[in-house]
Amino acid sequence: MFLEQAINGITLGGIYAIVALGYTLVFGVLGIINMAHGEIFMFGAFVGMLLVSKAGVPLPVAFLGAIAAAASMGLLLDRFALRPLRKRPGASHLASLISTIGVSILLENAAHRIFGAGNHLFETPFSDIRFQAGSVTVYLVQAAILGISLLMMAGLSLWLSRTRAGKALRATAENLETAGLLGVDTNRMITATVVIASAMGGVAGVLVGMAFNFINNRIGLSMGLKGLAIIIFGGMGSVYGAMAGGLILGLSETFVVAYGPAGYRDAIAFVTIIVVLLVRPQGLFGQAVSDGKP
């Protein structure tokens, strides 16, 4: 029982981590919270759902479709809601926050118009396949989710630390101006970051569909809120903080549901961040912010 719950928690945590990574990448580079990330993720889930359940294509193709859809939405988001603000000097840091909130509301309600408010089944062909190891049951879906999320985290870490593009991205995150002086095309870098983060959101969307077997137009909001909680918990802009934070949240939610007041499951994330903000405002893995000049 305990072990099964732990596996459930880790699976959920892996998904949370992927969602949180989408936020943390954009925050790391742009210093803004992309409030529309949850809704992009939700659209990824819907595209995946349509491809798997309605068109009957194999799962990997559905992943590619979701990635393509989410990535293009990221591109549009950057082009129409973020870039115009970058051009304007003296735009307050709240402007981009508000602008992405606008996009998120727009997308959520667009999804409501298109797909309705009800739940949509997300059926995978192997949803019933499971393994028995002693008293512990593990579903193939869980193993797949865990495998994919670990793969993505490892891939992202490698990409950031080893490749030229990844290094350029980290330089941009370090200091936008300096990176510009060093010849990094910061505008392209920013767009690339938003697109990559959104693509990861697309993957996360399909994973959520696989994990819960259904999706609706509100999962963007609920998963988005958790992603936000995780990056505050793990430290804004910290890639490893997002991964660890995701796992911790996934586990604690699962155990609270199993052994505690299930109704408060969705509040755990926020109780945690409120506590973290009181005790360690920079987050678990974040560095204390010193703003340099007064």
């Binding site: 840091h93 709240l94 505050i232 969705d266 994330a269 926020f270 961040i273 903000l277």
Partner: peptide, 19 residues
């Protein structure tokens, strides 16, 4: 907390109250 943290902390607060 700076602006962004405050926005999210208050968003979290709202969700906790509703829960």
């Amino acid at each position: 907390l700076s602006g962004v943290y405050l926005a999210i902390a208050t968003l979290g607060f709202g969700e906790v109250i509703r829960a």
